[in-house]
């Protein structure tokens, strides 16, 4: 048995495909009732990790336990006590919402008398009660994901593995989806979700930032941001390219990035450089409305920790 508070433990998990190491010595743990995000771009190893934790793919090295079951020695035990929602969850488009839930209830052997009450409760929690008789194929992207989640929850799992559940889902539906995850977490369900969207990762309790199969950083979003060296500065200006050209090469300034109505950059010393940048732009007669320090994003952290290496390399 593992320590009681950990719902998921991952120790040195590794998986290789041909000459690509998809997951490379991953190590982290997730507490019961925690919402934990695996964050990283396509090819970072998120889906491979999910599959190994779901007991549907054997690791080459390392070990992991999920809900107390060892994924290598007892993959069937894992499968019975968790729920795994892959990127393409198998909804039956020609069945109604209610029929899809009933199908999954039968699959998981839920007794008939429990089934209807549980289905009604899940649909109500997802805000989908009035869509009970609609064909799944006629739901919006966000609704389909919520139905998938309801199906995945029919057997009241203790651990929920969600692989990119909000990809292609609009921000309003995404907020609804996260609200449901938080309700589950307060009921003690452990949620491990993956996302390629670094801004979405700000919503979780803790995250593991992955890049090319390896763990870059692992902590609560707020603590990670506080640990970033230097400061992120936003310049709001009508001609961002002119601002970039002027401050490029200033000592202590790095990662200059043109955005829609200004420039983002990283400085090593905000105290000194905020006034210096303002002075420089004024002297060059480049218009700007403000130069202010802003909170770093997870993307800023990713770029700071990967640095120049590896990003665009084949």
């Amino acid at each position: 048995m593992v320590e009681l508070s950990a719902a998921i433990t991952v120790d040195g998990l590794t998986k290789q495909f041909a000459d690509v190491i998809a997951v490379d010595g991953l190590r982290f743990s997730v507490a019961a009732g925690e919402i934990f995000c695996l964050v990283g771009p396509d090819g970072a190893g998120k889906t491979t990790t999910m599959r190994m934790l779901a007991g549907v793919m054997a690791p080459d090295a390392g070990s992991a336990t999920v809900a107390g079951y060892d994924v290598v020695r007892d993959p069937e035990g894992v499968k019975n006590h968790i729920s795994y929602m892959p990127q393409r969850f198998g909804l039956y488009e020609e069945l109604t919402v209610g029929e899809n839930i009933r199908f999954y209830a039968d699959l998981f052997g839920i007794a008939r008398r429990e089934r209807e009450a549980r289905a009604a409760q899940l649909l109500a929690a997802a805000g989908m009660a009035r869509f009970h008789d609609r064909l799944a194929g006629q739901l919006s992207g966000g609704m389909k994901q919520k139905l998938g989640l309801s199906c995945a929850l029919i057997h009241t799992p203790r651990v929920l593995l969600l692989d990119e559940p909000t990809t292609g889902v609009d921000p309003v539906s995404r907020r609804d989806f996260w609200r449901i995850l938080y309700r589950l977490a307060t009921e003690g369900v452990t949620v491990l979700a993956s996302t390629a969207y670094l801004d979405e990762a700000e919503r979780c309790h803790r995250l593991a930032l992955l890049h090319q199969g390896r763990l870059l950083l692992c902590d609560a979003p707020a603590r990670l941001k506080a640990s970033m060296p230097g400061a992120v500065v936003a310049v709001t200006a009508p001609t961002p390219a002119a601002v970039r050209d002027e401050i490029q090469g200033m000592p202590g300034v790095s990662s200059i990035l043109v955005v829609g109505d200004g420039v983002h950059l990283v400085v090593d010393d905000a105290e000194r450089l905020l006034p210096a940048i303002r002075g420089r732009l004024r002297a060059a007669a480049i218009p700007f409305s403000e130069v202010v320090r802003v909170a770093p994003t997870i993307e800023d952290l990713f770029v700071a920790s990967v640095g120049g290496q590896g990003g665009g390399a084949p």
């Binding site: 771009p41 970072a44 770029v303």
Partner: peptide, 11 residues
């Protein structure tokens, strides 16, 4: 789904 460094180069 593109890594942040490639994304910044793209933009």
């Amino acid at each position: 789904g593109v890594d942040p460094i490639s994304r910044r180069q793209f933009w």
